[in-house]
Design a protein around this nucleic acid. Structure first.
Lengths: 121, 121
DNA sequence: TCCTTGTTCAACTAATTGGTTGAACAAGGA
DNA sequence: TCCTTGTTCAACCAATTAGTTGAACAAGGA
């Protein structure tokens, strides 16, 4: 399980070290060695982190002699943003409706002017 | 490790079942039992999933007799969106600049074929 | 050619996680 | 009161994962 890209992306970014690397790469491409420098972990561990980001499509690498510079693939972030926005908006709309209903109830109570127009779920 | 909220949020959403539950909750509050219904897993497993979402701040629960209806906390999504947008924009700006530089180079030597993109700045 | 640099592979360990079952607990309803 | 419903706790298992070390490999430079 956890095979789809969205799962891989979220899982990749659940690790603070990897988020840090993404932040670093947003400022410019970097080799695995350069990325490993600020951390106390082994280069191999960093290489593994890059693989995770790479499998998620967040990072690509191209050959340059014996180096493999890492490059942030910003477009993939759209997948996440779309997913997030969809449910946030849905939830917020629900609240807008609820607020409207509550406001209406507040309005109707003191004067009892207009009658209700059907139940809101 | 993985103690900060952003890590918990990303980790929580890395699981497709939990993303599904978020989708369900975006349409309206639901009890643990109702959430468990469409899945083949035990109610206890669903309860654990809700705990993960709850620890991440994505879901809250309130008491209603013996029920504990789950409620999606849409505001928390902002944390993610902000993090994502920051680095995406940063990366995109970098490309805008790179594109400008490449365009300039193209203008300056029309005969030279376009080069591979190396590290910027 | 041999040596150095940069990266990855392989094997292993410890910790985490998603699932299970069985028991407990909390709040109504008979 | 006892019974049912809804939820969580506890203990356990299998799979995954972040880290380690040691070895391999690929590409220049002497």
């Amino acid at each position: 399980m956890a095979g789809d890209q969205l799962s891989r992306i979220f899982a990749a970014l659940a690790d603070p070290t990897r988020r840090d690397m993404v932040a670093r790469l947003a400022a410019g491409d970097a080799t695995v060695g350069e990325l490993a420098d600020p951390y106390e972990v082994s280069v191999q561990a960093v290489s593994k982190h890059i693989k995770v980001l790479s499998d998620a499509g967040l990072v690509s690498q191209h050959k340059d002699a014996q180096r493999r510079p890492c490059h942030l693939e910003a477009e993939v972030f759209d997948l996440m943003t779309k997913w997030i926005e969809r449910y946030r908006q849905q939830a917020e709309e629900r609240y807008a409706r609820l607020d409207a209903v509550l406001a209406e109830m507040r309005d109707e109570r003191p004067t009892d002017h207009h009658r209700e127009h059907g139940a809101a779920s």
